[in-house]
Simulated scan of single mutants.
Amino acid sequence: MSEPTQHPIRFLLSDMDGTLLLPDHSLSQRTLEAVRSLREAGVLFSLATGRPPKAMLQQIEALGVDLPTAAFNGGTLVHPDGSILVAHYLPATAALTTLTLFADLPDIEVWVFSGGDWLAKDPSGPMVPREQHGLGYPPVTVESFEPYLEQIDKIVAASHNTELLIELEAQLLAKVEGQAQVSRSQPVYLDVTAMKANKGEALATLAEFLGVPLEQTAALGDGGNDPAMFHRAGLSIAMGQAEEAVQRQAHVVTGTNTEEGAAQAIERYILPR
C-alpha cells in the first residue's frame, strides 16, 4: 500500500459483488445511505462489475445511479437508458485459445457472455445456481460456442477448485498475452475479456466523460480484476476480505463486505474530503 493523493474526491467507481453487496447479493441500508450521502455531497458515483449490463439493473435503481456504468469488467460502458457508450469484444483468436484450454477440464464450468446472453453448454452445472442467483436470470443452453466467437464480451471458467483456477490463469496469460485480460473477479471465477475490457480503462474513460481528473477519482473493490482501477485512481480502497495481493495494490483497506466495509470507506475516506 502507498500513500493516497489528498485531492478532494469528485467521482467514486465501485465494484459490486463482494464490495457493495452482502454475500446474499443484497444492499444494506447503511450502504444505500452512504451512497446517497455521496450524491448529496456532490460526489459522482457509478459501478464497475464483471456482470452483464442487465444483471446490474436492480442495483442501479436501488442506488440511484444516473451515470454510465461499466459491465464485463469494463468491456461495455452503458448509459442509463441502455445505449452503449463503449464496447470492447474479445478477439476471436483469443476466445478460441481460451475455450480450447478450458475444454473438457474436470471441475471447470465454461460460460460465454455474448449479445446480452449468458451461454452455457450444461445448464445444470453445480456453479449455475450461484451465478443465476447473482444475475437474476438463467443461462441459454447452446451446443457450441463457436457461432459467437466474433462478439464475445466475456468467457468465464467457474469452479470451487480455486487452485486449478490459479493455475489456469497463469497458463492462459502466457497464451493470450497482449490479446486479452485474464483475472479472477472472485476466487471461484476466472474471467477472460478484451485487453481494453478492464476496470482501469473504464475508470479513465468515465472520468474523461465526466470531466473529472483521475487524481480526483476513487476506486473501491475486492477482486483480482479491481487493481486495474486501483492503479489509475487518486484513491484506491480494497475490501477487508480481499486477497492480500489485492490489498497490497490499494492505498487503504476498509472492512469486509459483511462489515459494510464499502459504507465505512465512503464515510471515512471520501466524505471527509
Rank of each mutant, 00 (worst) to 15 (best):
N73R: 10
G74I: 01
G116Y: 05
D153P: 10
V112Q: 09
T97L: 11
A95H: 08
F102L: 15
A94L: 03
A87S: 15
V142A: 10
A157L: 03
V65Q: 09
I155M: 10
A95F: 05
V112R: 12
I108S: 03
L67R: 10
V156P: 06
P139Y: 04
F102K: 08
F113A: 12
R130Q: 12
D66S: 14
M56I: 11
L67Y: 14
S124W: 00
G116W: 05
Y137N: 07
P123Y: 03
F72L: 07
P139F: 01
G82K: 11
G125L: 04
F72I: 07
E109R: 08
Y148K: 11
N73H: 12
D107F: 02
E150P: 06
E61Q: 06
H79G: 04
I155C: 09
P139R: 00
P91D: 09
G134E: 15
P123S: 05
G74Y: 02
Q58D: 12
L67G: 13
F145E: 12
K154M: 12
V140H: 11
G136H: 08
D107E: 05
V65P: 08
Y137L: 03
D122N: 13
A71Q: 00
P138L: 04
L67D: 13
L63Q: 04
G125K: 00
L135Y: 14
P147T: 10
L77G: 05
D117M: 07
T141A: 14
P91Q: 00
E131K: 02
T97A: 14
F102T: 09
F145A: 13
A94V: 08
L57T: 09
M56V: 13
A94F: 01
I152C: 12
A62D: 01
A120R: 04
A62C: 01
A94C: 05
G115R: 10
T76Y: 08
I84F: 07
R130K: 14
T141G: 04
L85V: 10
E146H: 12
M127W: 00
I155E: 08
K121N: 02
G136Y: 04
V112L: 14
F113L: 15
H133V: 09
G75S: 00
D117E: 15
A157F: 02
W111D: 13
A70G: 06
T98C: 15
P126M: 05
T69P: 10
P129N: 02
I152V: 15
A92H: 11
P80F: 08
N73Y: 07
M56K: 10
